[in-house]
Design a binder for these strands. Sequence first.
DNA 1: TACTGGATTATTTTT
DNA 2: TAATCCAGTA
Length: 777
Amino acid sequence: MDLSKKLNERQQFAAETLDGPVLILAGAGSGKTRTLTYRVANLIEHGVDPYHILAITFTNKAADEMRSRIQSIASGETAGVWVATFHSTCARILRTYSEYLDYSSNYSIYDADDQKTLVKNICKKLNIDTKFLSEKAIIRRISDCKDNLVSAEAFEKRDHFEFRDKQIAKVYVEYEKELKANNAMDFDDLILKTVELFKKYPPVLENYQDRFQYICVDEYQDTNNAQFEFINLLASKYQNLCVVGDDDQSIYKFRGANIRNILDFERSFPNATVVKLEENYRSTKNILGAANSVISKNINRKDKTLWTKKEEGHKVRFRQLDNAREEADFVYEDIRRDLRNRDIVLNDTAILYRTNAQSREFEERFIAGNMPYKIYGGINFYSRKEIKDVLAYLRTIDNAIDDIQVRRVLNVPRRGVGDTSIQRVAEYAADNNISFMQALRQADLIQKIGRSLKGINDFVSVIDTVSSKWEADEYEDLSDMIDDLLIISGYYDELQALDPDEAEERMGNVSEFISKAAIYTQSYREEHGTDDNPTLSEFLTEVSLVADLEEADPNLDCVKLMTIHAAKGLEFKHVYVVGMENGIFPNCLPMDEQDEEELEEERRLAYVAYTRAEEELTLTAAKCRFLRGEMNYNPVSKFVMEIEPTYIEGNIPRRTSAFGDSYSDVNPYLSRPVERKPLVGFGSLSAAQAQAKAKPKAVLYNAETKPYSKSADAEVRKTNMANNSGFAPGDKVRHIKFGEGVIKEVKTEDGRTIFSIDFEKSGTRNMDAAYVRLTKL
DNA sequence: TACTGGATTATTTTT
DNA sequence: TAATCCAGTA
């Protein structure tokens, strides 16, 4: 294969360095996937059996893409290459060796919801007040422990100075016990248990080392410690480990990613070959210049600079608008103008924001302007309530000792089994050391179970009927079984009883799930050349490890709206990054060392955002906006100020800070600059700091702007009232969420004007005239 | 057991 | 603002 025709010099070098540890630092838009694909093809060409190649990714999407690209350039031979995500790789290994860890192979995989339910139950049992210590915080800490391979026992033995930590340790111990009892693992366990397996059973490890003699890891900057350990173990025998990533695009610290893995790669593998891919094929010089000037402010990064042969292009544009609504107006009008005057289609355009909540303003504007748009990043198909219900049924059938699932569906549809009864069954199960399901089977022996007994027996019989039919192979396939289950259980009936719109939506989702099951069966049969059904466990694993998020449909011509995180890896001709304000983006401000790290992560996020743009990059900010029902005045983002002036044009505030150019100190609403106390002080904390410390995140600005925001709040309310003053009882109106309705009453309650509106779909609601947005019909 | 309304509290997210 | 959750009531 002549790689020199397909790849630039650096890429070629990366694709030809086949043995030993290799670190490919692949900047944004530098042809990373291309290089990787050719590298794999090259391995095969050099006689490496595809069977010995492992390519690991984070997402299924990335795995699919890599698989199909390898397929397209390496003729035929690629079937044996194992391309999969970390989690599915580990899940597969664990299915084979589960018994070594005292699990059975049909273990359940718990997602965030299951975790939360479990932790909630445990807290109740241990009498821990979740107001004092939230489930979220507990789960976060447990996950951190698992990521660092700290077992519950080890964590418990530590000297905890904080009461909270002691509590967390208790929950963690119980959590592990419960998982084990339920034959369940959480996502972290998949990695952790595999590492455990490898460490405990060297022959098993060696088996996989010999199998995977060439390992490639994509998006290496996103790996956490457990994943690092996993890879480390696998690669330690042959040392043929190629990792690809970009430290500047490490934006997942909040879910455990450790940027040190990529920064210290050469320390872990001292004989590593390092290749930097710095030529960018995506963006113009101005866009890259802007991105580079911002990211160069980070301390913790590998030295590199993206460059391009492309033209200068347009300067990055910056616009500060008066408020969030005008920001949306501006973007909308700008896109409209491009559509009229230039060779641009909606598909070329993306709007990126820091937080999902920001999408609303744009959505409303696009609806009003009748411009096609699509918001990405809704909820995962498999985490919809009705789908989770169906899954809980299937898990009950597959793994009856998974109490969490059984308890979820015992009373769905309603069978008259309430909390009290569930509690009694749970106690009975605990007393007799049996699973919840087993306890249900003996429900007639449980004291005071009374009226619930019939419901419990109904439930048990549903599970038994379907299980035995499935075991006896009486169903055509999986989808057939699910359908039958939902009929027998009465789940369909309960869905139908909902109000029509909701019923339709949920039924739609359920039937989509059923067709997914049918498709899964079909492809399983083709792949294995059989007429058999896949096992339920296999299907459930697949479903647990696939998010099934909506993909950008290239045929749908519309503006795409998404968070910056969701945009990683994508590119668009014209990108708008909106809400460029301190307090929103960056979301936090530096208070101490740790926050400095967070700020660097935010800066990387800015870098990711800017480098999505191919031809035009527009940054916008609002002088004020509603945030959680409160008016906020935010200065222009430091990530705008950090762009070198030659690359940017627009109404950028003067840089007059006494603290370097890291803050925009000009509040446009004041005649004098805001007086700022030093943020990193010595000795006692300033009032602002104390407040920010007690209640971190984005409050710092509130602390300073509050005196002004109150009056401004009233001001805006007045304006809004003026806007809404044209409404009177009897008016037909439309609300963005509740649809059409009629104003029944306009009343005043402690100085506020309230509309009482009768909506067709959702009945009467009282809405504050100062906030509600209505369209007169 | 089911429903309602007051309190509470807000990033980013794949597996 | 708006979504979510739990406590208290019907």
